[in-house]
Design a protein around this nucleic acid. Sequence first.
DNA 1: TGATATACGAAACGTATCGTTTCGATATAA
DNA 2: TTATATCGAAACGATACGTTTCGTATATCA
Lengths: 213, 213
Amino acid sequence: MSNTATSVRHGHSEKRTSIGPRRSPQTEAAILEAAEAILNESGHAAFTIEAVARRAGAGKPTIYRWWGSKTALLLDVYRQRKLEVPNPDTGSLEGDLVAIIRGVYRFWRDTPAGAVFRSVIVAAQSEPEALGPLTEYARDRRENITGVVERARVRGEVRDDADPEAFADLFVGYLWGRLLTDRIDDDPDEIARAAATMMGGIATPRMAEPRSR
Amino acid sequence: MSNTATSVRHGHSEKRTSIGPRRSPQTEAAILEAAEAILNESGHAAFTIEAVARRAGAGKPTIYRWWGSKTALLLDVYRQRKLEVPNPDTGSLEGDLVAIIRGVYRFWRDTPAGAVFRSVIVAAQSEPEALGPLTEYARDRRENITGVVERARVRGEVRDDADPEAFADLFVGYLWGRLLTDRIDDDPDEIARAAATMMGGIATPRMAEPRSR
DNA sequence: TGATATACGAAACGTATCGTTTCGATATAA
DNA sequence: TTATATCGAAACGATACGTTTCGTATATCA
């Protein structure tokens, strides 16, 4: 009734030790797993090297040997997660945007990715070492969005004078703001309104420049 | 040539002590000033109670007596700064947006406000105590923007089916993303493109619903 | 088979900050 | 004059930092 949680080590219960003069994949996996779990369950403030070592059943020197710093470990955890972003093709740009927003929210909610990413943003505000990877990731995300926009452009959905880069910057900033203020519920109505606003803006259409077609 | 910086206490050089059985305004000001200066000069990681006490020439118990926690002190510093946001009326909505963006960037760059606000965002990711004030502030900023939009609506600049709330959420998220990725230079061209994208979106205008007028 | 090299986890180190407590000095208010 | 509440200084135990030392384990190579 109360002896299970404390006696069983999280995840793996085998005691590890050296497997010879080379890096142990089990130890590496256990450390990454423990780091991610701590970030996910207890947040950035609880993410200490001591806590990771305790939970992983590892020694602190082992962590410092392979990662060098807490930020390096965080960034490594982050790299394992950041690729699983959705990129559907619904046939319409607005549909794609809605699907992306909902997919990202779900990804952030249902996996440790949200907690990990928030920690990376936090780290980047203090550690220059983390700002580079963060801006690099932001650029990747924007390029992903500009790709979706270009795909829609050939379908005639995008205005000729549209600026996909500015649009992508707007889009990604919006998602981050939602994450950082803890507003990533799946509210289809709100998401639809956000996507519609991104698509059409708010200005009264000017019937000026006539377009080809 | 090298004796000025170390001998003179930052800002005020008078030694303070008790002024009787009531709170000392000088001590309060010195602590707030020291906290803001540390955030501005050395960032969130260097913002420790010990460092603030040292720089302010104050005792740690004095800080804990009046603020209770590091987060409380941070939020108090933040409250002193957050009101100085610009809200111009340029006559056009797009002009207002450009002016607001440039004004906020300048405010974040040229005062400690940017560093302080980044710290609040960071704190909100760990301390539930800070998430409330942050979301409250975000709501205030959005209401400010919806006000600007409503002002433009009566001038006929805004579509009838526009969603000012969604627009404001988009706008504020964009600014935060720029701050957190350290991209708040005054680049008039980029800012103009961002504002134009917010105004008109990117979609090909649909000539559907005929509008009044 | 045996020596070498390297990884592993455990333990302890000195340093720094945490939040708290104790203390003597100060100055207003009763 | 006396009571009261503030002030800064100093020290406390606790925690995490990054590092070092140590004994154990196991491939690789002579």
